[in-house]
Design a protein around this nucleic acid. Structure first.
Length: 264
DNA sequence: CCGCCAGCCTGAAGGC
DNA sequence: TGCCTTCAGGCTGGCG
């Protein structure tokens, strides 16, 4: 579920909440999480917190890393003392409290490794200097895929999912089914610029909560108030007032304004 | 390389 | 009330 802004929020909060703490014990409640090496971090001190794409990377003094991917419903909750927790899948008992991994649908993954090569297939970070007009134009020219699919291809660009892809394309005025290799340099430049603006704004708002997402404090995000098209089928387009439509792309819903986002 | 689909899971919501 | 279908923010692997 979470995309880049949500995972960035989680990572920043964990940096404030658990950096420097020592692991006292680990309890794995979901059998699917067995065999991932998680028990190896039994007494380590947390020395770094990073994000790569939609992955949260917790580094330890021993050189181990815990790599967490929330998929649809995975989340870390820091020290939710006293509150009964549904869908609790793992508990990291730290010197300052409990870090709980909660995941209703159990698609999320946790794994421990000494190197981060398993993340080497991820594409450029969209908020890094490497995500330029030239880069997107180059990968676009080599692809006849629909532009929304390309934006969400984690091997090319790491961190954009279904919500922000729709919002970025609306903001750029580009139809989600446009073939990537038909976009002009001007359209590509707008796309890159809007991607950075929207992702940064969403981070500022601590992410988007549609149904399930919570940050590590158990709070919802704020960007759902700013969504222009996502989930808004039938509502008036904020630009032209015509109804927002929903289509299917590769089995997933895409929301857009057919008037403001033309095919040609 | 590409697109499409099932599968992985659980729960909410809507139709009848 | 209950039963059934559909839908959900992600990703992988298999097929053609």
């Amino acid at each position: 579920m979470p995309e880049l802004p949500e995972v960035e929020t989680i990572t920043r909060q964990l940096g404030e909440q658990v950096l420097g703490q020592r692991v006292k014990g680990v309890e794995i409640l979901d059998p699917k999480l067995q065999g991932k090496g998680i028990e190896r971090i039994r007494t380590d001190v947390i020395t770094s917190l990073r994000r790569r794409g939609k992955n949260i990377i917790i580094g330890f003094e021993t050189g181990l890393y815990l790599i967490a991917h929330p998929r649809m419903t995975g989340k870390f909750l820091w020290h939710p003392d006293g509150h009964p927790l549904q869908h609790l899948r793992a508990i990291f008992q730290l010197s300052g409290g409990d870090l709980c991994w909660v995941d209703q649908r159990r698609f999320g993954s946790l794994m421990v490794s000494e190197d981060l090569r398993l993340l080497s297939g991820l594409g450029v970070e969209p908020l890094s200097p490497g995500f330029t007009d030239g880069y997107l134009y180059q990968i676009g020219q080599r692809s006849s895929r629909q532009i929304k699919e390309l934006l969400m291809d984690q091997r090319r660009i790491a961190g954009i999912g279904n919500i922000y892809a729709a919002e970025i394309l609306f903001s750029a005025g580009i139809h989600p089914q446009r073939r990537a290799n038909t976009l002009s340099r001007e359209e590509i430049a707008i796309l890159v610029q809007r991607t950075k603006v929207i992702l940064n704004k969403a981070i500022e708002e601590k992410g988007t909560t549609i149904a399930d997402y919570l940050d590590t404090r158990g709070n919802t995000g704020g960007y759902q108030k700013l969504l222009q098209v996502y989930g808004r089928v039938g509502f008036p387009c904020p630009h032209c007032g015509r109804p927002i439509e929903r289509i299917r792309q590769s089995g997933r819903s895409t929301y857009f304004c057919p008037h403001c986002q033309r095919m040609k």
